[in-house]
């Protein structure tokens, strides 16, 4: 590859580094991640409200990772549907349903954990199936279909529960709080989910089909793919990741309330993290590693804002601006017409 590039005959170190980066298939978002990480360290050094830099504080570093778990898991699922040129606005409600369902059904009894988890994944897959059928078979616009399903979930949940209900047993909380050596279990789970997502997308036939459907549904259908079925599976995967996120959230909180998913803005933030990670809204381009970087960017920013003591609402303003700028960072060069 380097032999082909004209500068290869006498490459400077910089040019060689750039060529290596281009060939390595590392998503460009990792560049933003590094920049933001360095910026966070500098800002912390100048404006930090305590003496210690956060990069020397293992608790804070671990916290950045743990903060990424909830959003990260569901963002992997969101990446799947978005690669198929679909979208899922119901994940936040699915997370609420899972969190409330888990603490209500487990009712503090360790013996009920396993079947509760199975039931919840069953519900999640069912919701994903319905989403997928509405989008893939009935051809309803995904934004509207999943919003409608989200409203139905929210309505049913709020009609049944008004507040925190039940609790999960202490043993279940080890999902959120236990560590293996220095590494929290939850971070390990996130890593495994990303790895599994990468494997399915890049190493299986299904992954190739999903990219094909997202790239051009028409072409995929004409080349013999059952495009509807591919989308249904993507939506089922997405809802299942929402269930896993819900389980993590409830194991941290000990009990679920109907608002935990929506207050976490998991729907919009999972979409934002996926897009910042380089997955195209129009589908067919991107991947889960980029999404992971997008999620890490959010957690680093959150941590830095806390370190320099920024007002909660100012945080929200900056967050919005950063979402726009981060996506603009690599869309502004593209010449394609956008909607």
């Amino acid at each position: 590859m380097t032999a082909i590039t004209p500068t290869a005959s006498s490459p400077s170190l910089l040019a060689r580094a750039r060529a290596w980066l281009r060939d390595s298939q590392i998503p460009p978002v990792y560049g933003i991640l590094v920049i933001i990480f360095i910026a966070a360290i500098l800002l912390d050094a100048v404006f930090g409200i305590d003496d210690q830099l956060f990069i020397f504080n293992q608790t804070i570093l671990t916290n950045i990772l743990v903060r990424s778990v909830a959003l990260g898991i569901v963002a992997v699922g969101q990446t799947f549907v978005m690669l198929g040129a679909s979208i899922d606005l119901s994940v936040a409600y699915m997370i609420s349903v899972t969190a409330v369902g888990a603490s209500y059904l487990m009712a503090g009894d360790p013996g009920r954990v396993w079947w509760t988890v199975l039931v919840l994944f069953g519900v999640g897959l069912l919701v994903g199936l319905v989403n997928g059928l509405l989008v893939g078979r009935l051809k309803i616009n995904a934004l509207i279909a999943t919003l409608g399903i989200g409203l139905i979930l929210r309505g049913l949940l709020n009609a049944t529960f008004e507040n925190f209900a039940g609790s999960v047993p202490a043993s279940f909380q080890s999902f959120a709080y236990d560590t293996i050596g220095p590494l929290p279990i939850s971070v390990l789970v996130l890593f495994l989910v990303v790895l599994a997502g990468w494997f399915v997308l890049r190493r299986t036939k299904y992954g190739a089909h999903l990219y094909a459907v997202g790239g051009s549904e028409e072409v995929a259908r004409l080349s013999g793919l059952r495009t509807g079925r591919v989308l249904v599976v993507a939506h089922m995967i997405c809802s299942a990741t929402a269930v896993l996120t819900g389980l993590f959230v409830v194991s941290r909180l000990r009990a679920g309330a109907p608002w935990v998913g929506t207050d976490g803005l998991y729907d919009l933030e999972s979409i934002a993290a996926t897009v910042i990670g380089g997955t195209a809204l129009s589908g067919g381009k991107g991947g889960v590693w980029g999404t992971l970087a997008g999620v890490l960017i959010f957690s680093i920013l959150d941590t830095m804002f806390n370190q320099i003591g920024i007002d909660a609402y100012m945080k929200q303003i900056l967050r919005g601006a950063i979402i726009i700028l981060a996506v603009g960072f690599y869309t502004f060069r593209s010449r394609a017409e956008q909607g």
């Binding site: 919009l268 979409i271 934002a272 897009v275 809204l281 007002d311 609402y313 100012m314 945080k315 929200q316 303003i317 967050r319 919005g320 601006a321 950063i322 979402i323 726009i324 996506v327 603009g328 869309t331 502004f332 593209s334 394609a336 956008q338 909607g339």
Partner: peptide, 22 residues
Amino acid sequence: LKVPSLIATLGMLLIAKGIGLF
């Protein structure tokens, strides 16, 4: 900037409400 409008206005959703609440 050629940011898809879904994302651009999602960012604005956070900014506009943030300004009001701030």
